[in-house]
């Protein structure tokens, strides 16, 4: 038993050192230039257009998938891996005829209509009464200088009205999120980066996305960019673009709905990295980055996945 433990860190160290040596040999000067460019972007507000940098990132991110999957309309990746594999897509479409999250939407609507002790409701906290607003989340709040996700806003609403916050991840908060997403279907995401603080939050999410972590030394990008479309055992790795549009998702292996934070935790554990807390700054910034990368995609949550 312990001999397994003994070997794993050695293998990981070898992978780390090997990749370190390879990367250093390959393009040290390019890397240095990129780091310097990124640092300038991050630290300077004068003469730097955050919007231009973000637009360039979106173009490169989308372009990667357009090149990798030339026969697939990139916006079809709102359906994840089901845009790639026709057989799996048919199975998924069959499931979606009587979706397993249907009752969760109804329960979410009931919860959303709950009248708080002070007589207010969730509708009082959100623009347009909370209907058709999913595409505006997550956003960067310039007053509190942080990324506000839909689930955080739901709990902020509760607390502002004297109610206890809901537990994150699964259950009632995922149901409410699902209902709100359902009322927003087909509305397009176009999340903005309004100022330097927002840009730093965006960069933090971007750095998280591309950083290898955990005992298995994998980044989000390793699975959902570089080897997206490949099989990991029986599962087809979904492309990173459009991944946030279908949230929250009903996963067959969970047997219930879960928020994107729940999925992040699962991903981290899969690579043997200690997950962060729900609604931690790291995860909120990651969701911010990922949703910005999905600019122009429509809301199609909640959705089901294997």
């Amino acid at each position: 038993m312990y001999s397994i433990f003994k070997k794993l860190p050695l293998v990981s160290l070898m992978i780390l050192l090997t990749s370190c040596a390879q990367e250093t040999d390959q393009s040290q000067s390019d890397v240095t230039a990129e780091i310097q460019a990124e640092t300038v972007d991050q630290n300077s507000s004068a003469g730097v257009s955050f919007a231009d940098n973000v637009a360039s990132d979106i173009k490169r991110f989308k372009g990667y998938f357009v090149e990798k999957f030339p026969s697939i309309d990139v916006y079809e990746f709102k359906d994840g891996a089901y845009a790639i594999d026709e057989a799996k897509r048919q199975q998924w479409l069959d499931i979606e005829e009587f979706p397993p999250y249907e009752f969760s939407i109804e329960e979410g609507e009931e919860s959303f209509s709950e009248v708080f002790a002070n007589g207010k409701t969730y509708a009082d906290c959100f623009e347009n009464g909370g209907v058709g607003v999913r595409q505006n989340f997550p956003y960067f709040d310039t007053e509190s200088n942080q990324v506000i996700t839909l689930e955080l806003a739901i709990n902020q609403c509760r607390q502002a009205n004297g109610e206890e916050p809901l537990a994150y991840g699964q259950g009632e908060i995922a149901n409410i999120s699902a209902y709100m997403a359902y009322t927003s279907r087909d509305k397009k995401f176009d999340i903005q980066v309004p100022n330097e603080s927002a840009y730093n939050a965006y960069l933090s999410g971007k750095k998280f996305y591309y950083s290898k972590r955990g005992q298995l030394n994998f980044s989000c990008a390793d699975c959902h960019l570089k080897i997206s479309g490949s099989n990991l055992r029986a599962e087809l790795l979904s492309p990173g673009i459009g991944q946030t549009t279908g949230m929250p998702i009903y996963r067959a292996k969970w047997g219930e709905l879960g928020t994107i934070g729940h999925r992040y935790k699962e991903c981290n554990l899969n690579v043997r990295a200690q997950p962060f807390d729900y609604q931690s700054e790291a995860y909120r910034n990651l969701e911010y980055f990922q949703t910005i990368m999905s600019k122009g995609f429509v809301v199609n949550g909640p959705s089901s996945r294997r």
């Binding site: 990367e23 393009s27 990129e34 490169r60 591309y210 950083s211 990008a221």
Partner: peptide, 9 residues
């Protein structure tokens, strides 16, 4: 911290 940019497309 020093090399994450290598993974950016």
């Amino acid at each position: 911290d020093n090399n994450w940019q290598d993974n950016v497309p």
